[in-house]
């Protein structure tokens, strides 16, 4: 009988040493004991396809296809992204437009949206206050400019919009991450950052002066 217990103990020790404990990291894929309907013949986003030669389930758009606006069914301003100011930041003569497109209202809500998106997508390089000293500067991104110089203070809004959409030199496009309306929100926030750097005591509304200890 003693041998039987020894054998059992031996099996226990080998089992534990082979299987390990819960939560230990492993590079082996999880075992599927009954893979019933875990893998169905359907395509999921970013999955691998056995059919297409490049194995991509998400098909790239064919050359020459035209971008559709969001509400393509009605022919409104979004139809085929027809509004040049809204979608390309340009005006009729092809130069960059000043000001915001008519469908965008610049208010506190827009700026909050812009701040959120700016913090996520721009601050790593341009810094929280737009001085170009984001965290990446110390790792070798020397080219990131500050927004607070004469040229960038005076460029049209449409130009900033175009920089986000298409990129500029070392800065690549953010069009895949920001929808046109969000891009305009970011433009508004960039303008707010620039304004903040040139603020004076005279800009503080009189009702808030006492909070800041001003007269």
């Amino acid at each position: 009988m003693r041998y039987a217990y020894l054998v059992l103990f031996f099996f226990l020790v080998t089992a534990i040493s082979v299987l390990g404990f819960r939560g230990s990291t492993t590079t082996r894929p999880p075992l599927e004991i009954f893979p019933d309907m875990d893998h169905q013949a359907k395509y999921k986003p970013q999955a691998e396809s056995a059919f297409f030669a490049d194995k991509r389930t998400d098909r790239p758009s064919p050359a020459g296809s035209v971008a559709f606006g969001r509400t393509a069914i009605q022919s409104d301003g979004n139809f085929l992204a027809a509004d040049d100011h809204m979608y390309r930041g340009t005006q009729a003569d092809g130069t960059y437009a000043r000001g915001f497109p008519s469908s965008i209202t610049v208010d506190g809500k827009l700026l909050e949206r812009g701040q959120l998106k700016y913090t996520i997508y721009c601050a790593p390089c341009h810094g929280a206050i737009g001085d170009g000293n984001g965290i990446t500067k110390q790792y070798g991104m020397g080219a990131t400019p500050t927004y607070h110089d004469e040229r960038l203070r005076n460029i049209p809004e449409g130009d900033i919009y175009h920089t986000i959409t298409a990129g500029k030199n070392n800065m690549l496009s953010y069009a895949d991450k920001l929808e046109p309306a969000d891009r305009w929100a970011v433009v508004a926030y960039v303008r707010a950052l620039q304004r903040a750097q040139t603020g004076t005591v005279a800009d503080v509304p009189s009702s808030h002066k006492s909070e800041l200890g001003l007269k």
């Binding site: 059992l8 226990l12 089992a15 299987l19 819960r22 939560g23 230990s24 990291t25 492993t26 590079t27 082996r28 894929p29 999880p30 075992l31 004991i33």
Partner: peptide
């Protein structure tokens, strides 16, 4: 004793808490 060890082993191992947690390809 053997049966209870096997049962304990199954509850401990045959669950996603063991089979999935820790997967790091």
């Amino acid at each position: 004793l053997t049966a209870s060890i096997v049962a304990a082993g199954i509850t401990y191992y045959a669950t996603p808490k063991y089979s999935r947690v820790g997967y790091a390809p």
